[in-house]
Design a protein around this nucleic acid. Structure first.
Lengths: 210, 210
DNA sequence: GTTCTTCTACTTGCATTCAGGTATTTTTCT
DNA sequence: AGAAAAATACCTGAATGCAAGTAGAAGAAC
C-alpha cells in the first residue's frame, strides 16, 4: 500500500486528485494538508511514500516547503503541482529535492504514471511542458539558474524600482544620494545582464527575485 | 433538476467539483467543456441553468467567453472560477454578465451556497475575497475598472515595451519614426494614468492587459 | 590587522524618457 | 461624403537613465 499526502489549500484540487485515484486500490490518500504548518505537523509523525505538493500555498512558498520536506524526510517522493508551465519554477523545484512535477491540468493517466515513475526512483516531468523545459534545461539552464547573489541593499532597491519609483525618489526614501542609487542599479544590471531598467525588472521577475 | 455545465481545462477541477456535488441530488453535472469551443458547441443545443466558468482557458480569455455566453444565453447563471483573488478580474467578470464568482480554494459549502444564491437571482461573491473586493468596488473601483480601450497599435507597442525594447528599437522594428513611438507611449501613459514606463507596465500587468 | 565585500558618493558624456504641445494622413464609421 | 478616431510625425526643454569609470568608509572574515 502506497500512502500519499496531498498538500494543497484548494479542496477542489484535493477532491479532484482523490477522484482520480479512487479506483487505484494500492494508492491510499492518507491525509490532505491545507497549509505548510499542517503538512509539517503531519510529517513529524508520518512518512508517506508520495507527497503531492502545491507550489502556491497561503502561508509559505512551496519551493521552500519542498526543501524543508526534503531535509526532514529523505525518502518520500515529492511531486510538485504547478498550474503554470514555468521553466524557472520547475527547475528550482527539482533543485530543491522534488522528484518531479505535474501541471494541474493533467489527465488521470498522467498522475498515475507520475506516481509509478517516482516510486521507481525516476524523475517525472509533465508531458505538456517537457519540450519547453528541456529546451531551457539544456541551453539556457545555467544562465537561468545562476541567480546571482544580491546584497541586501540591492534587493531593497530592486524592490523599489519594481514599485515604479525612479532613482531620485528612492534616494529620498532611503536618505541616500541619487548617485548611490544609480550605482546600485548599475550593479544590479550588470549582475543580471540587463540592458535597461525594464529588462532588469523582467529578468528579476522571471527568476522570481521579486 | 438543475443542470450544470463546467467549463475548465483542468480535469482536476472538474473532478473536484463533481466530488463536491455528488451528494446533491438536485444538482446534475450535464457536461464538462475543456475549451471555449467545446463549451459553445454544447451551448448551441443546450441551456444549462448553471455555468461554472474557469477564467483561464487555453483557447480564449475567460472574460470574453463570459460575454459571449451572456449574449447567446440570456438566462443561464454564470459563476466565474478564479484562482487569484484579483479585484479587477472580478469586477470585469461581473460587468460582462457573470452572476458571481468563486475562488478555486472554495469549500464545498460555499459552492452549494453560490449555486443557490444565483438561482435565486442574486449575485454571489466569494467570501474570502469580499472585503478586498468591496473595498475596491467602493473607492478605487471606477479607476480600476475603467480598463481604457487601447488601439491596436497601442497594444502592440505596450507589448514591445514590456519585452524590454526602448523607443528607438521599437521604431526600427515597426519601421516607424521614434517620435511616433513616443507619442503612442505618451498616450498609453495618459490612458493608464502612469507617471513612468515602469509604472505603465505595472499597471498594465495589474489589469491583465499584457 | 589586514583583506574582501558592501555600501557609499562622485564625474563626464551621451542616450532616452517625459511633459507639453502641434499637425498631417489614413482608417473607420455613419 | 463627412465626421470621428487612430496612426503618423515633429518640436523643445527638462529630467532621468545609462556607461564607464574612480574612490573612500564601514563591516565581515581570515
Amino acid at each position: 500500500m502506497i500512502n500519499i499526502l496531498i498538500i494543497d489549500d484548494h479542496p477542489l484540487v484535493a477532491g479532484g486528485i482523490e477522484m482520480m485515484l479512487k479506483d487505484e486500490e494500492h494508492l491510499n490518500i492518507i491525509a490532505c494538508a491545507k497549509t505548510a504548518k499542517e503538512a509539517l505537523d503531519f510529517l513529524a509523525t508520518n512518512e508517506p511514500e508520495i507527497i503531492l505538493l502545491d507550489i502556491s500555498l497561503p502561508d509559505i512558498d512551496g519551493l521552500q516547503l519542498c526543501e524543508l520536506i526534503r531535509v526532514k524526510n529523505k525518502y518520500s517522493k515529492i511531486l510538485g503541482l504547478t498550474s503554470t508551465n514555468d521553466a524557472s519554477i520547475i527547475t528550482q523545484l527539482l533543485h530543491r529535492g522534488a522528484n518531479g512535477y505535474l501541471l494541474k491540468n493533467m489527465e488521470r493517466s498522467e498522475l498515475i504514471e507520475a506516481i509509478d515513475k517516482v516510486l521507481d526512483n525516476k524523475i517525472f516531468l509533465s508531458r505538456a511542458a517537457n519540450e519547453k523545459v528541456l529546451e531551457q534545461f539544456s541551453s539556457v539552464s545555467t544562465a537561468l539558474n545562476n541567480v546571482p547573489a544580491l546584497t541586501r541593499r540591492e534587493k531593497e532597491i530592486l524592490q523599489l524600482l519594481e514599485e515604479g519609483l525612479n532613482g531620485p525618489q528612492i534616494a529620498e526614501k532611503l536618505f541616500l544620494s541619487p548617485y548611490t542609487i544609480e550605482t546600485h542599479r548599475k550593479n544590479l544590471m550588470q549582475k543580471l545582464n540587463a540592458n535597461s531598467l525594464v529588462q532588469l525588472l523582467n529578468i528579476a521577475r522571471n527568476k522570481k527575485m521579486i
